[in-house]
């Protein structure tokens, strides 16, 4: 059970306050999107949760444990895949296990069965530059997933910061479909950061709007439709209603 909660987090860079009393709760196996305009503090919040930045005030709790300012508890994935160019895909994917002290052979054995599910079968011994952008993002996601496996007994949450925004439209749509199916399977608690409203509605259980300067959570929207029934969701009346509501919420500030 991975349960991530952010309580009244505030953060400033020097004189400029970026985040003000941001609170957010991610339940186990839930996918919550954090939606907001660029430069609105999304990535700062992301770094705070990842433990790279320490907030001025507030706490980050994982399964009730205070992890504020500590790294090594949540794994994240960015727009850039950050695969190491000199490691094969399987060794890239294994990296979190190796860092946790597992033997190479053991780590590979643990990672290998996931390749088919992630649509990466046959790429194990290839190098990142031999893969397409979509494939590399899948590999990066598999690496994120392996990190959650490296902490058996203390499940982790994953942070995804615009993971698909560098891909072309068709690949992105394909990735969305794949991702929804994948999440049904691996049930990773995920905080998904994006500025793409459609993406947020399509993938999330809940959407939090981060608005204003300094940024704060102004609204929370629950997407009622079950994730298994999201095929063709994007062209429904229901979808448009959500979109209108979000646009209104983002404009208000």
């Amino acid at each position: 059970m991975a349960d991530l909660s952010i309580r009244d987090v505030s953060f400033s860079y020097g004189e400029t306050q970026i985040l003000k009393d941001v609170s957010l709760h991610l339940k186990d196996q839930e996918l919550v999107s954090l939606l907001g305009e660029s430069g609105g503090g999304k990535t700062t919040l992301f770094h705070v949760i990842a433990g790279v930045l320490r907030p001025d005030r507030g706490q980050v709790l994982l399964n009730g444990q205070d992890i504020t300012g500590e790294s090594g508890h949540v794994s994240y994935m960015l727009q850039k895949d950050l695969l190491l160019p000199y490691r094969t895909i399987i060794d890239n994917v294994c990296l979190p296990l190796l860092l946790a002290g597992m033997k190479k052979k053991e780590a590979r054995a643990k990672a290998a069965p996931n390749f088919a599910d992630f649509g990466l079968a046959g790429t194990e011994l290839q190098y990142p530059h031999q893969l397409s952008g979509g494939m590399r993002q899948r590999a990066a996601l598999l690496r994120t997933y392996m990190f959650s496996l490296s902490r058996e007994g203390s499940p982790v949450a994953a942070l995804l910061d615009e993971p698909f925004s560098a891909l072309d439209t068709l690949t992105r749509q394909e990735m969305h479909r794949w991702y929804l199916g994948m999440m049904e399977k691996i049930r990773l608690s995920t905080l998904f950061i994006t500025h793409d409203i459609d993406e947020a509605i399509l993938l999330s259980d809940r959407i939090c709007l981060l608005t204003g300067r300094p940024g704060t959570i102004s609204e929370e929207i629950v997407i009622e439709r079950p994730k298994s029934k999201r095929d063709g969701f994007a062209v429904t009346e229901e979808f448009l209603e959500y979109k209108k509501r979000i646009l209104k919420g983002l404009k208000r500030t």
Binding site: G51, V52, S71, S75, Y76, P96, S150
Partner: peptide
């Protein structure tokens, strides 16, 4: 960014050097 990512996975200074 790569160093940060590894740090977030709990990598030590030596592991970052090595990997």
């Amino acid at each position: 960014d790569t160093i940060r990512l590894l740090e977030s996975m709990g990598a030590s200074g030596w592991q970052i050097f090595r990997h």
